[in-house]
Design a protein around this nucleic acid. Structure first.
Lengths: 143, 143
DNA sequence: TTTCCTGCAAAGGGTTTGCACGTGT
DNA sequence: ACACGTGCAAACCCTTTGCAGGAAA
């Protein structure tokens, strides 16, 4: 139990500090997102939150997701016109490798790429504010 | 005139070779996309195509864009839940730097980044099929 | 002529919103 | 008590689709 409380602290804390109301729904949704390791979409968050407490509507999930995004605790991953997927935002930046056969999303970090990006932006006369890198790959068979 | 015909040859050719009907609408839409240098969205393509010939509907623009995508002559750029934008696909691969103040899209190529991506994918057990890199930056003032 | 394409308008899928009620502080 | 959050259903926006008429081959 103490473990659980600790897990949601990042999201919860950022709200306590900003005077935003910590409702039952928001706690459950924060919990669901923190517990997820598979980048769920809004509907999936809704389903999981509902299993915990059925007083939660899809509309509230969308409103809460937007709230989380605005408070920089949640990151949206857009995948070509389909439902957007989400992940909790941590301090450690990372990018995504998407398995084109299974849809699995693998996270990775590569500092060399990050550095090159800054360099490229600067060369074009810009300071890099953010970036989005998605690799699409096929699993190499090792049999 | 000869120049114009030459410009749309890439898109037109891939149709002649595949036995797909080359309708008036498709020619105009191909022309509009080839002439565009600003990554227009579907509605913008519709507006421009209509100026050239008002017998073109939005539905046809969408159908034609999809057709172009399937034939790998058009590339879709997704920008966070808003309308998708498009660009003619050339052999030379490039990525995008988006000006977060103006929405301008600047194209760039960086072979070092491309190479690193392949290396990263391989390290994770994948062969790189495709990738999407978008940098978001603010223009550095030089005054 | 035959097959495929088009325009129109209606449907679709994901996301947002107006409203009256409910809840956290 | 008061301000803000919620559920519901309707609205919204972009995109797709069914159908009957129209054009390319």
């Amino acid at each position: 139990m103490i473990e659980k409380n600790k897990q949601i602290s990042r999201i919860v804390d950022s709200f306590l500090h900003k005077g935003i109301k910590l409702t039952h729904q928001r706690k459950v949704i924060a919990q669901v997102i923190t517990d997820a390791s598979d980048h769920p979409d809004a509907n999936e968050v809704f389903i999981r939150a509902n299993k915990i407490d059925n007083r939660i509507s899809l509309a509230t999930v969308y409103r809460t997701i937007k709230l989380f995004e605005e408070n920089n605790v949640l990151n949206r991953i857009e995948l070509g016109g389909k439902r957007a997927r989400y992940e909790e935002l941590t301090d450690a930046h990372h990018d995504h490798l998407i398995d084109i056969d299974t849809g699995d999303i693998i996270e990775f970090v590569d500092n060399d790429i990050e550095e090159l990006q800054k360099k490229v932006a600067k060369k074009l006369g810009y300071s890099l504010v953010d970036h989005k890198l998605e690799l699409f790959g096929k699993k190499i068979k090792t049999d």
